[in-house]
Design a protein around this nucleic acid. Structure first.
Lengths: 202, 202
DNA sequence: GGAAGCTCTGAATGGTGGTTCACTTCTTTC
DNA sequence: GAAAGAAGTGAACCACCATTCAGAGCTTCC
């Protein structure tokens, strides 16, 4: 019988792949997509440049994986909060606060996910994930309208607006390494979002 | 006496430069920054690739000029409407409608200005112009608060949110070559923006 | 132990596209 | 008309990096 991968070997390879993705994520968070070369990622992971191609068919595929992992986590967290306890308006407020707080706690990565210039494949992923954010927000807005907590409105537009507004509000703070007065920013951001959805002033 | 540029020669050179910028703008609007090569721009302008460097020191410099011209026009138009007749809330509504309508009438260019992937130099310009949009919106929001038409709020945040929200709402329609129901979109967009600034429902 | 098949290496390769430059063509000046 | 200097040309150049690949080093299995 010929060579066959042993379970521990399979685990080792998977771990190597995970390690590669994690290192690539760090590099991207530190220097952005544009400055991230295959060599830099390989160095950071302690392997040769060529070895990257054992795990991914191209740099773009690795970049997409990095993006999906990181953005996927955020979608998941946001989805859980928006689907959680409380009335729709409370959930919306909490979701936005959690999202923004997480971004501000991991600025480099958040900037890479939200705004940093990237190759086409990553740009396409970004659009896709924005669509998911929108869908999540749209659902909560729909629930809010159904519950009579929000006025009649085009929920898709409000959802898109929230997505864009949060990103834009965060871009500047994310650009500066250490932020001033995070709490105040979050309060104002949430207040703006609730107004945007038409929730009555608190 | 040596060679000296005659007035008509100077005009000819300036016109050539203008023509080059105009052609480059068209190319960018059609295919986006990423697909815009120096050769393509030169072909479009009917000159040789090398001649581009008579007018601009680098491709990046040309790209920045293209961006500044086009984005500058939009800032100017928006500024005039926001500074025009009527109360601050009316002006805000009209400004957003005009901005969005112009974008939808020139989708390729608007997409390039707002969202299309671009080289670093253009990205920096984009940030700068977003700052200007924000400043314009922030001023109107400030006036609205002073006039008692808008509730107390962090005007900078609202302004950033409006900038991001408008962009995000427009990105999808701009991606599709011909848009459905522009008027409905504009109505909903303006309604959302007014809610975002806290204007009472109409 | 050793054959077979795998992973890993890192220097060489290759495609892309911005930029250069020797040369041609046009303008100015006398 | 001719010299001097500028603009215009476009093929050649070159830097940059993702990608490849021949060989080295491991792992599996009999």
């Amino acid at each position: 019988m010929a060579y066959r991968k042993t379970p521990s070997e399979i685990r080792r390879l998977e771990a190597a792949r995970e390690h590669l993705v994690a290192c690539a994520t760090s590099v991207v968070a530190e220097v952005g997509w544009a400055q991230t070369s295959v060599t830099a990622v390989a160095d950071s992971a302690g392997i040769a440049a060529g070895s990257v191609y054992q795990h991914f068919p191209s740099k773009a595929a690795l970049a997409v994986e990095v993006f999906r992992r990181a953005a996927g986590r955020e979608v998941e967290v946001l989805g859980e909060v928006l689907d959680g306890e409380g009335d729709p308006v409370e959930r919306l407020a909490r979701g936005i606060e959690v999202f923004a707080r997480r971004a501000l706690e991991n600025r480099g990565l958040a900037y890479a996910l939200l705004a940093a210039p990237a190759e086409a494949a990553v740009g396409a992923e970004r659009l896709e994930f924005r669509r998911r954010y929108r869908a999540l927000f749209a659902e909560v807005v729909r629930q809010g309208m159904a519950a009579g907590l929000l006025p009649a409105q085009n929920g898709e537009i409000t959802a898109a607006a929230l997505t864009g507004a949060i990103g834009e509000v965060l871009v500047d703070p994310l650009g500066t390494p250490s932020g001033p007065t995070t709490d105040e920013l979050l309060t104002d951001l949430v207040a703006m979002a609730l107004r945007c959805a038409g929730a009555p002033a608190v």
